[in-house]
Amino acid sequence: MPINKVLPSFAAAVADIPNGATVMIGGFAGPGGMPSNLILALRNQGARDLTVISNTAGLPGFAAHTGQTIINQSVLFENKQVKKLIATYPVPRSMSQISAFMKAWQAGEVELEVVPQGTYAERLRAGGAGIAAFYTPTAVGTQLAKGKEVRTFDGRDYLLERALKADYALIHAHKADKMGNLVYKGTSRSFNVHMATAAKVTIVEVDEIVETGELDPEHIVTPGIYVNRIVARPKERR
């Protein structure tokens, strides 16, 4: 039997995510690279007490066209499904904008771990690379270094940072073949490419599914062994 990881619906792809799961959500911040349909399916599915690992908690209007509505992580906070967020940029830039996450955080409903973005990227990479932890110079001497081991190499201080792993990763790619080989488009590669490797189950929302063999092996960014489930966006929602 040829390998075929394509599922018929976003709902089917997220149906088994249990309460208490750790879920990575890909993309950067705007609609480009955001697995919006998978996020919506997870909201509708209703799993609670989730730990969400995501660059942002949903930023209204970020890198979107004027008037464009973006479905992002905010819907999970509105629906009170998240108990902890690990992020680099959790709140809107302007203090006058109040996001769903901000409200939940102010109400004490959700715990927050803020991570410098490069440390976050490397923790994801490590999580998918069998590396337990690493030393980085970022954040030495700041409040984000609290409680972390400091070690000096060649006269410079570094912090020990742990890998990030998850039960599920919800990501977006431009194209997949049926084996799950992925290619991305422009800056929408972003954290999707790391999360694909760092979760037990990686679920991909793609613009287009092609037959195995149609993607040039020289261009494949994420090899299919990292991918478990693929769902295509309906044409009108690409």
């Binding site: 950067f28 480009g32 890198a63 990227a121 800056t187 929408s188 590669r189 790391h194």
Partner: peptide
């Protein structure tokens, strides 16, 4: 702008000859 071509500040940027894409790590 193209939603697949932004900078980290969320601004749309233009494509240039010699441009390259890679992972955040």
């Amino acid at each position: 702008g193209d939603v697949d071509l932004i900078n980290a500040g969320g601004q749309f940027v233009s494509a240039m000859p010699g441009m390259s894409f890679f992972s955040p790590a």
